[in-house]
Amino acid sequence: MARQSISFTEPNDKWLKSQIDSQEYSSKSELVNDLIRQARNQQKQIDWIRAKLEKAEKSGFTNATKEQILAQSKSDLNG
C-alpha cells in the first residue's frame, strides 16, 4: 500500500476526527480510502449516464413511455 502525507483544513480535520470518534471508522486512512471509493463509484455512474445520454441523443426519438424507459434503464443498470 502506498503511503502519502496529506494536509487537511481545520474544519475537514475536525470532521474526520468526529467520524473516528463516533467509531464509524477506525482511522483517517480508512475514512479517506472509503471516500475515494465512493467518489470512484459515483464517477462510474456519471460516466454510464453520460454514455447513455450520448447514445440516446444519437438514436433519435422513441415511442416508449417514460415508465418503459425507466424500467429499461434500471434493468440495464442492474445488469
Rank of each mutant, 00 (worst) to 15 (best):
M1K: 12
M1H: 11
M1C: 07
M1N: 06
A2H: 12
A2I: 15
A2V: 15
R3A: 12
Q4S: 07
S5L: 14
S5E: 14
S5M: 12
I6T: 08
S7I: 08
F8C: 09
T9W: 04
T9K: 13
E10T: 10
E10D: 15
E10N: 11
E10I: 07
E10P: 01
E10F: 02
N12P: 03
N12G: 09
D13I: 01
D13M: 14
K14V: 11
K14H: 13
K14I: 07
W15C: 00
L16R: 01
L16V: 13
K17R: 15
S18N: 11
S18A: 14
Q19E: 08
I20G: 04
D21C: 02
S22P: 01
S22R: 09
S22Q: 12
Q23F: 10
Q23G: 05
Q23R: 14
Q23E: 11
E24P: 03
E24T: 14
E24G: 07
E24K: 15
E24S: 12
Y25C: 04
Y25P: 00
Y25W: 04
Y25M: 06
Y25E: 01
S27G: 03
S27Q: 05
S27W: 05
S27N: 02
S27T: 15
K28S: 10
E30N: 02
L31I: 03
L31T: 06
V32Y: 01
V32H: 00
V32G: 00
N33P: 04
N33D: 15
N33H: 13
N33W: 10
N33V: 13
D34T: 11
D34F: 11
L35S: 06
L35W: 10
I36K: 08
I36V: 14
R37M: 13
R37K: 14
Q38W: 05
A39N: 08
A39R: 10
A39C: 06
A39S: 13
A39W: 02
R40M: 09
Q42L: 11
Q42W: 00
Q43F: 09
K44G: 04
Q45Y: 10
Q45W: 08
Q45E: 14
Q45I: 06
Q45K: 09
D47P: 04
D47K: 04
W48L: 10
I49T: 08
I49H: 05
R50I: 06
R50F: 05
R50V: 06
A51V: 02
K52W: 02
K52H: 08
K52P: 04
K52E: 09
L53V: 14
E54F: 08
E54C: 01
E54M: 06
K55C: 01
K55D: 06
K55L: 10
K55E: 15
A56E: 00
A56F: 06
A56V: 00
E57D: 14
E57C: 00
K58C: 06
K58R: 14
K58D: 07
K58M: 09
S59N: 10
S59Y: 02
G60C: 04
G60A: 03
G60W: 03
F61C: 09
F61V: 11
T62R: 02
N63F: 08
N63A: 13
N63E: 13
A64M: 15
T65P: 01
T65N: 00
T65Y: 04
K66L: 15
E67P: 02
Q68G: 07
Q68P: 00
Q68M: 08
Q68L: 02
Q72C: 05
Q72F: 03
D76R: 13
D76Y: 09
L77V: 07
L77D: 04
L77E: 05
N78M: 12
N78Q: 12
G79T: 09
G79N: 10
